[in-house]
Design a protein around this nucleic acid. Structure first.
Lengths: 205, 205
DNA sequence: GTTCTTACGATGCGATCGCATTGCCACGGG
DNA sequence: CCCGTGGCAATGCGATCGCATCGTAAGAAC
């Protein structure tokens, strides 16, 4: 086996170019030639690492999603201990945060939305984590109720859905420059405080 | 002036084909030839009514948005009198409703999102009405507070932003088959009742 | 009827698309 | 040392893209 190269790094570099193009101007802007130019490599190289355009696009999407998850868990690693609410708040703050990577990742996701209609593989990637986030949010509401912080008449499932919607849409508005990040964060915190009661301070982030 | 034809109708027919294609598979699926085929007309006809593809796309988007507005005001015409809350609720219920046209219109809007980043004309069309909706929602919250239905400590502006996010994202989830319409409506009503207090019955829709 | 203008259908052009093919070149194993 | 294979760059192909051009059929105006 001669002439070995860091294959995974090359794939990631190219996928990153896909990601930037898609975030900048949608999937229409993503062609093999454009990706090659953006990544500063030849078109042959792109084709060497991805047999089809579809495969390349999917890898780009995976990269974007993976980056977001990494940044969320990165937020948690700065804490000594994390309960469910910490995890939830970290995820939410990350999504509405002004982080450039996250914004771009969200735009990439939106760009893939139409594809999710006809391609279940894309749909899985895009929406695969929604259920666990929903369950987590509902659990946090229940926990707050048990602590007598949240009103007992709240429906945890509905509140989870509302919260998920708020975060998703605020994140999208930030990503598309329709809302400044700090305003989005303010709205998110306002809503969380109204639902869960103000955060009992266990060392703020 | 010879050979007159219902020009506006022709334009609308073609724009409707644009709309269906974009709703089905995103802007990538919209080419002059595809539009002509979908509309059942020749490509020459399409070019006769729209000098550029861009112009055609914009007209398609305008059509989609206009249809939604028409359906919202259609809901209001069935009522004897409409106060601000009626208007708001009509708009919101329409957006999360299962209406096939509305779903498609929302998908078209999402398909245009990436373009809004670089084309301010598209951005105006897509987001031009957001401010009035936001103001309306905030007013309704204030009115509910004046009626002692909503809690006085609510921040009407923040609640309006939360509400707008909830509706937008629920509508998107319905449009992309990620949530059944009645569940979205249930969540919307749950949230409205929590914020405004239950609707005092002035003849339900 | 002639004329003029609108309303197209048909066709062609250059660019770009995704993809397949070809071949060189750098290395590691024998 | 030299084969052989992995890692590319280069090029070509057929399809499709948006758009421009050209021809013509169908009516109003006279």
């Amino acid at each position: 086996m001669p002439r070995r190269v860091d294959t995974e790094q090359q794939r990631t570099d190219i996928a990153h170019a896909v990601w930037r193009l898609a975030a900048r101007a949608g999937l229409e802007a993503v062609s093999l030639r454009e990706v090659a130019a953006e990544a500063g490599v030849s078109m042959g190289r792109v084709q060497h690492y991805f047999r089809t355009k579809e495969e390349m696009l999917l890898h780009g999407l995976r990269l974007a999603l993976g980056r977001m998850e990494d940044r969320i868990s990165g937020r948690l690693r700065h804490r000594s201990s994390a309960d469910a609410e910490d995890v939830l708040r970290s995820a939410l703050e990350e999504m509405v945060g002004g982080d450039q990577d996250t914004r771009q990742a969200i735009r990439v996701c939106v760009a893939f939305y139409p594809r999710a209609l006809e391609d279940p593989h894309v749909a899985d990637l895009l929406f695969g984590d929604d259920d666990v986030l929903h369950a987590l949010a509902a659990d946090v509401v229940r926990a707050a109720q048990a602590d007598h912080r949240a009103a007992p008449e709240l429906d945890p499932d509905q509140e989870a859905r509302v919260l998920w919607s708020v975060v998703n849409h605020l994140g999208t508005e930030v990503a598309f420059h329709r809302l400044p990040p700090d305003q989005a964060r303010a709205t998110l915190r306002y809503h969380l405080d109204r639902v869960l009661g103000p955060r009992p301070d266990t060392a703020p982030a």
